[in-house]
């Protein structure tokens, strides 16, 4: 079990966890639970991206992608929260 396999197994587990938290994302009773689920999935996909970068030995490219992804995820969550505060749509 080389380090490469280890990274693959870890990102596989993370992928499964993304599916599990997607359940809350789709079935979440309201708008709020869905934002939390999407935020959760966003952080997980950042880690999956970096792990995939290590597997494919192109880390420099994937680190930039995951950095941009983390930024966008954060801004998306803030935008949803701000919309919620103004509009009040639960």
């Amino acid at each position: 079990m080389s380090m490469n396999d280890f990274f693959l197994w870890m990102s596989l587990i993370l992928g499964f966890l993304v599916l599990v938290s997607l359940y809350r994302g789709i079935g979440g009773p309201g708008f709020l639970n869905r934002i939390v689920a999407i935020n959760d999935i966003g952080t997980k996909s950042v880690v999956i991206l970096v792990l995939m970068g290590l597997v494919i030995q192109r880390v420099d490219m994937f680190v930039d992608i995951s950095l941009a992804y983390a930024l966008l995820n954060f801004i998306g969550t803030l935008a949803a929260a701000k919309y919620l505060e103004r509009k009040g749509a639960i």
């Binding site: 935020n39 952080t43 983390a70 954060f74 929260a81």
Partner: peptide, 19 residues
């Protein structure tokens, strides 16, 4: 990225909670 997540995630959670 680690530093950013350490700063951004609690802020986002706070924003949602406040909303």
């Amino acid at each position: 990225i680690v530093l950013f997540i350490f700063l951004a995630n609690p802020t986002a959670t706070h924003a949602i909670g406040r909303a």
